[in-house]
């Protein structure tokens, strides 16, 4: 463990907590893409199949359980409890356009052709594009609540910090994982224009408005 990875995990945890708090306190999931949340739940499910078979540390196991519980709790809040506030009309990204290519690529490019490894690889590729429905929704509605933009900033920062972690681990222990690293770069690049808007607008107290 290093401070970059710990920082990344805490940014990820913060993002998940911000989202749950936003939905719970405003009792509304307006502006949030349920499709992205489905992809995140899928990602964690496919990645943490080894939750009971591969014990790394208490921290690792606890965080996996927290991520899984939070992902499904968010789906419950969006599709059951506050279903009436879910914005179907703006959350229209076709999930199959993301799930099928990620699954196909995971079958072709992986570290090992085994169930657990292909599922892990699928989760890595899926996570890289999981935010697209959310970014698509923000561009369609043309704006986002400030709490939603804080959520996106924390979520985007998490994988950016992981990239620093991989650089650090490469030079300090010779560890590298090209699949996770390249997918992480793609994932972080997708946030770039949002990061620009967040830093130039939201941090100045303005609302996040996307040029329509």
């Amino acid at each position: 463990m290093n401070i970059f990875r710990l920082g990344g995990d805490l940014a990820h945890l913060l993002a998940i907590i911000i989202l749950l708090l936003k939905i719970w306190t405003t009792r509304s999931c307006a502006g949030i893409s349920g499709k992205s949340q489905i992809l995140f739940a899928l990602t964690f499910t496919a990645r943490y199949l080894d939750l009971f078979t591969n014990f790394v540390s208490v921290y690792n196991s606890v965080m996996k359980v927290v991520y899984l519980a939070a992902a499904y709790a968010t789906l419950y809040l969006m599709y059951v409890k506050f279903k009436a506030t879910y914005d179907h009309n703006h959350d229209t990204f076709r999930l199959e356009f993301l799930i099928l290519p990620a699954a196909g690529l995971a079958l072709i490019i992986n570290h090992e052709f085994s169930i657990i490894e292909v599922m892990w690889t699928f989760s890595i590729y899926l996570e890289a594009v999981a935010i697209l429905p959310q970014l698509f929704m923000v561009s369609k509605t043309g704006e986002a609540e400030s709490i939603t933009s804080h959520y996106l900033f924390a979520l985007g920062s998490y994988r950016a910090l992981y990239i620093v972690n991989w650089v650090y681990r490469y030079y300090s222990e010779g560890f590298y994982d090209m699949i996770a690293t390249l997918a992480g770069v793609v994932q972080t690049v997708l946030y770039c224009d949002f990061f620009y808007l967040y830093i130039t607008k939201v941090l100045k107290g303005k609302k996040l408005q996307l040029p329509a």
Partner: peptide, 10 residues
Amino acid sequence: ATKSMNKDEL
């Protein structure tokens, strides 16, 4: 190779 295989990251 691109191997890592040790899944110690989240």
